[in-house]
Every structure is written in C-alpha cells, then in structure tokens.
C-alpha cells in the first residue's frame, strides 16, 4: 500500500555485537562502527548485506546467512555457504573462506572455496588455493596458488583440435638438433 524505504533501513542495528548471524567466536573485537551505517555505505545498506568497516579487526570464525562485505581485517575462518562474500579494496583477510561466491578487491591469504564463483578484481590479491567451478581473474590482479575448477562443457578425455594454424603467422618447423628452419622473422 505504501512505499517502504528499504534502502534507508540499516541491515544491522547500530548496537555493538548486534549482528545475530555473524559470530566472532574467538575474539569479539568487532567494532561498533563495523555495523554502523555511514553516508557512503548506502549501497551496502540493502537488506541481507552486512559491512565490516575499515577499522574493524575480527579474529575468529565468521558464520552467516547474509551477504557480507569486508573492508577491515579478518583472521580465522569465514563461512557464508549460501551467500556472497566481498572483500573490499581495504579488506585484509587471513582466513579460510567458504562461500557461494567470493569477490576479491583487497587481499586474501588463505584457501578460498566457492560453490559458484571466485572473482579476483583488478588490484585484488590472493595467496592460497582456490576451489570453485568458475574463477575470474582480472588484469592487474595478483594470484599465487592452485586453482581447482570443475570441468564445464568439455568431457574429461576430450582432446583439443590440432589443426594447423593459419599460414601467414604460422611458425616454420625447426629441427630439434638446431638446424635453422629458415623462417622469416
């Protein structure tokens, strides 16, 4: 009947420790500012989205059933198996991560497991192993570790086509013994 202004409604109450679905088990060092909405957080104030602010340090385990954006520091373990985890440009995470999708713009040290997608954006950094059916790594991102992806589309034993390439740019074969093949440079 009447318009409800969802965008203006903070997802999490401003009171400290009031985020019911997120638990900092080993250290309750969650700053109240972490969940307090600020003017610049308008986008993050949608329902089912929580923001851990720049000044917040969380040590322990984070579990939840809401999308989460981390701009602060988290050490330990993060489990959002049905939700999207975003590590913002200022986010520093040293943790094992389990989520539906993980978007990384900051730094992650630790293994990342996602049931849908891992997206490392420009200037994002991951040192650890990734397990996800889809992995996107932007130009300028840093990654070191292993990537385990389920095969999508191609059959396990499928061989790639081995047709000869176009003549104009095709390299000339050279004998392994070192005799020059005489290809144009």
């Amino acid at each position: 009947m009447w318009k409800r202004d969802d965008a203006a409604k903070p997802a999490v109450p401003a009171a400290p420790g009031a985020a019911p679905t997120h638990t900092a088990t080993t250290s309750p060092a969650v700053d109240a500012a972490a969940t307090r909405p600020t003017a610049g957080d308008a986008r993050g104030l949608e329902r089912n989205a929580v923001n851990i602010g720049k000044s917040v340090v969380v040590k322990g385990e984070l579990n939840g059933s809401e999308d989460l954006t981390i701009e602060g520091q988290v050490e330990g373990k993060i489990e959002l198996r049905q939700n999207v985890l975003t590590i913002g440009p200022n986010g520093r995470v040293k943790a094992q991560i389990f989520a539906k999708a993980v978007i990384i713009l900051g730094e992650v040290t630790g293994n990342v497991t996602a049931t849908e997608k891992v997206d490392i954006r420009d200037n994002g950094s991951v040192d650890g192993d990734i397990a996800s059916p889809r992995v996107a790594i932007a130009e300028g991102a840093h990654f070191r570790g292993s990537i385990d992806m389920q095969k999508a589309g191609a059959k396990p034993g499928e061989k790639p086509e081995t047709k000869p390439a176009g003549a104009s740019t095709s390299p000339a074969p050279q004998s392994p013994a070192g005799a020059p093949a005489g290809a144009a440079r």
């Binding site: 991102a141 292993s146 385990d148 992806m149 095969k151």
Partner: peptide
C-alpha cells in the same frame, strides 16, 4: 597469472592449475 588462461585451461580442460 592471466585470467583468460585460467579460464581456458581450468574450465575447458578441467586441469588443476598451480600458478
């Protein structure tokens, strides 16, 4: 690391990639 290589090798061939 190059994103397109990861996508190509990982999604298409189903390799386990160590970068």
């Amino acid at each position: 690391v190059i994103g397109t290589n990861v996508a190509y090798l990982g999604e298409r061939l189903g390799c386990k990639l160590f970068i």
